[in-house]
Amino acid sequence: MNLTRRHMLLLLPAAAIAWKYVLAGTPEASPNYTMSQHWWGMLIDLPKCIGCGNCVRACQAENDVPDGYFRTWVERYHVSDYDIENPHVDSPDGGKKGFPLSKEEGGKNFFVPKLCNHCADSPCTQVCPVGATFISPDGVVLVDKTYCLGCRYCVQACPYGCRFIHPKTMTAEKCTLCYHRITKGLTTACCEACPTGARQLADLKNPNDPIHEFLKAHSVQVLKPYMATHSKVFYNELDGSVR
């Protein structure tokens, strides 16, 4: 076939349109969702957290997380008046069944929910030798179960301890930021179940998302900023003793 100038002129725009769709990317299960239009994160409003454990239970119910393993969990901090560098931290069963009464009196006491920070420069995805874990184009750190070897490099690399090896499949598991929900226009299970609004899903690419106003008006911090992971889980009024 001779490729004439006329053919070329017809082909080029078609190729450009096709390439645009390749770049945008659309998970087949959710036809109205375009990955390139989102950049997901989460806001944790610490003064609102009451340590009820609803998020932990919701996460387990939504994602079939095995008993004794956690994609999200709640820690209770007790910072004594005399030793702010060494807080007492407990998290009985991840906070799934609530917290017993504190033994320590006085000091500073508060709850800190933890989950995958969906870092924009995540250490865990960099160490995977087979390309089984990756940052999706919309900013969610995911694991491809069929590709994972279970080598545990990523479990060790995560500075936040957010990964584990599933006892049955022996592959890496972690919070998916309820990817199956957010691509359908729902919020995550933990945010849905949080009774006080301490957890809020945030779409940083959506100019109308309330996260932008919140970040401007509050002193917000991420965990371990010195690791330069560019975490996208923002903690409002985070205490300096939180590790």
Binding site: E28, M35, A61, E62, S136
Partner: peptide, 19 residues
């Protein structure tokens, strides 16, 4: 999209919803 299986994204997104 990068050094991973692109279809994995759609597979993860296809999980049924409980809440």
């Amino acid at each position: 999209y990068g050094h991973y299986r692109g279809n994995a994204i759609a597979e993860i997104a296809a999980r049924p919803v409980n809440y």
